[in-house]
Nucleic acid binder design. Structure first.
Lengths: 228, 228
DNA sequence: ACAATGGGTGATCAGGCGATAAACAGCGAA
DNA sequence: TTCGCTGTTTATCGCCTGATCACCCATTGT
């Protein structure tokens, strides 16, 4: 009766993908799905969004948890390894330019609803991969920024930045990061000009960092000599 | 056989609480529970932690969702209304002292695993109460800080801070806030001396703010005259 | 043309979920 | 004591979840 006429048409529409590509497609769509619903979202809803039935997921992934792990991997690797080291340490350019360009690019990648939500969800789970990422940010980004700032301020180089220097870099970095959280997760109104926000944050940080580092216990009116 | 002898003893141990107190106790423990498990945590597990059976919850709360809403209310109201206005606007004291004392106290309240986790979970849900809280922070805290900073820098008062000023205050505030996230949610190692972190953040912000505000489009070596 | 292969589906299972109803237990008033 | 009230438990319902199995059908190699 209502038996479909041969659904070849419908089949024909979906282009043939290699198994690996199909799998990657699943992971990508699953990332979107879990970013909205949280990892408590059901496999049936996910399958519906993929346009397939739920048992099919288990042909590509042994369990929901394995699928989730692969979502983590792709999300956490996405913003990494795009030639920052050279950018951050290229002393032929003013430090402010380098940092502005870096944060413009970095936030272009991570300031999406999808990325930020997956990141926070996984952070709340206390996953190892989250701590690993935080460590990468600290070692590959913040430590370098500190080193460049010290160089800029004419301070002696040191192998490892001090704990309080790292902390200052974290406070600076987090301030920028949280702009994305406010905009894409809380959906609060923010200053629309992202580059302006980064620029102002940089100006405040660069102006303040030199003074604080140069005079660790100084009163607030210490002479400015570390910068300029 | 293993039927308990009259459990009067066990009953006697738990002190009689008024229904309202009992209810409050439930909400408090539920807050702890949900902060660890997320709001997907089961009512049976919650009841077990309360030392009662699951249906009893439904005598005190019509549904799980109502219980959760009350958790939100208590959590979001906890850090509010502790006389900040006077503290922040008391111009008889140096601004740095005021801000240091304020952030010491504010972070004493919100830097707990419980508070931060509930806050982030509810933020991810996109709840109205979250946007409301963000608005309160902006109006009652950040706008005042900006006003005091402008005053300190000898700049003319204005009824409303500009969007970019608010944004700078957000970046500053978020930097401090995220210290708590890193410590209590990601459980990353952080600078142990919280007051030092706040102090450094303040020094950077106060030193940088004046320069940026005084010379909006200035190069990075503009003379420092707004502060000091 | 035809069997084989493997992507895809319908039916289903066991378990956990939120929620409800009925039974029970302790306590103060009559 | 006895009644009734309130706090608490036992038993249970319907639903949804992650996961599995047997089956189907389309493409492909020969």
């Amino acid at each position: 009766m209502s038996r479909k006429p041969p659904p070849k048409r419908a089949r024909a529409k979906q282009k043939r993908l290699s198994p690996d590509d199909r799998r990657r497609e699943f992971v990508a769509k699953a990332t979107e799905f879990f970013s909205e619903e949280g990892f408590g979202g059901g496999t049936r809803d996910l399958a519906r969004r993929l346009g397939v039935t739920q048992p099919l997921l288990y042909r590509y992934f042994p369990s929901k948890d394995d699928l989730i792990k692969e979502v983590y991997r792709t999300v956490y690797l996405e913003p990494l390894d795009t030639g920052w080291e050279k950018l951050l340490t290229d002393r032929s350019r003013p430090i402010r330019d380098r940092l502005q360009e870096f944060y413009n690019a970095y936030t272009d990648v991570i300031f999406t609803r999808k990325w930020l939500r997956i990141y926070l969800y996984s952070g709340l789970k206390g996953l190892d991969i989250n701590r690993w990422y935080v460590g990468v940010v600290q070692d590959k980004i913040l430590a370098r920024i500190i080193r460049e700032c010290r160089h800029e301020a004419g301070l002696p180089a040191q192998s490892k930045p001090s704990a309080s220097e790292i902390e200052m870099a974290w406070v600076f970095h987090s301030g920028i990061f949280y702009y994305g959280v406010r905009k894409y997760i809380y959906e609060s109104p923010v200053l629309e000009d992202k580059a302006r926000m980064i620029g102002d944050a940089l100006d405040v940080f660069l102006a303040g960092f030199g003074r604080v580092i140069a005079a660790p216990a100084a009163p607030k009116c210490a002479p400015v000599k570390a910068i300029g």
